[in-house]
Write a protein that binds this DNA or RNA. Structure first.
Length: 219
DNA sequence: GAAAAGATTAAA
DNA sequence: TTAATCTTTTCC
């Protein structure tokens, strides 16, 4: 039975921007390349791993915050579009490398039993965060997808560090630069320093508090 | 009201 | 392979 759809960006992390050079509006000349990947089964418990089509080279000049319309589409469409995008909070910037889509009919989707106190944000309009505690230990970050009323979201599973390495390592409690720094959904939440209080926070604007994370792209 | 499961991680 | 750890949902 179908549960979820996972998308993975298989490429090397892009060059890192020195913290001193990064600001709200520009992170000059990052280029990102979506490399071809095979469709493989990463976790036997999960039915299918989808991959991106092969290799498109994209170059951007300026960072812009993604508009809310960007998010208000089917989670299955939103998921691959999040690959390569940037998640920013303060000096920490992560580039999304692996995501997983959860749709209303997926057996693992938190929205499958309707609106509850915890899952209410999932049913809200796309572009907000849905953060919840997993196994009592890990804060998992989802990007709510689709229109209001549809319980769909995309889990951020893995990222590459772009900026704020010191902060990331400090929050993670590891000095490594290896993939295990950010290759898991619980690690993303930890690296961003978020808690469940962040659930329902809009990701399509910096928000009232500048320290709140938001999703950006280079365009 | 009690019990079990869970979109995981790190360490052995 | 397993313990850690606790909230949400389910079952009686």
């Amino acid at each position: 039975m179908k549960r979820t759809q996972r998308f993975k960006r298989v490429s090397k992390p892009k060059k890192r921007i020195p913290d001193s050079e990064l600001d709200e509006d520009s992170a000059a000349n990052l280029s990102t390349q979506l490399l071809k990947s095979k469709s493989t089964r990463i976790n036997p418990k999960r039915p299918k791993i989808l991959s991106l089509p092969a290799s498109t080279s994209l170059t951007f000049d300026h960072m812009t915050i993604l508009p809310r319309e960007f998010f208000q589409i089917d989670a299955l469409d939103l998921a691959p579009r999040l690959l390569g995008k940037f998640l920013k909070r303060d000096n920490v910037v992560l580039q999304i490398t692996e995501v997983e889509a959860y749709r209303p009919n997926d057996s693992a989707c938190h929205g499958r039993f309707g609106i509850t106190a915890r899952t209410a944000p999932v049913f809200g309009p796309g572009g907000h965060a849905y953060v919840y505690l997993c196994y009592g230990l890990h804060t998992l970050l989802n990007v709510v997808a689709d229109k209001e009323g549809n319980g769909a979201a995309v889990l951020i599973r893995s990222c590459a560090p772009i900026s704020g390495m010191d902060t990331i390592q400090e929050r993670r409690g590891k000095k490594t630069e290896k993939p295990d720094l950010l290759n898991g959904p619980g690690k993303i939440g930890q690296a961003l320093g978020i808690s469940t209080e962040w659930s329902n926070h809009p990701l399509h604007s910096p928000g009232k508090f500048s320290s709140r994370p938001y999703l950006i792209r280079l365009s």
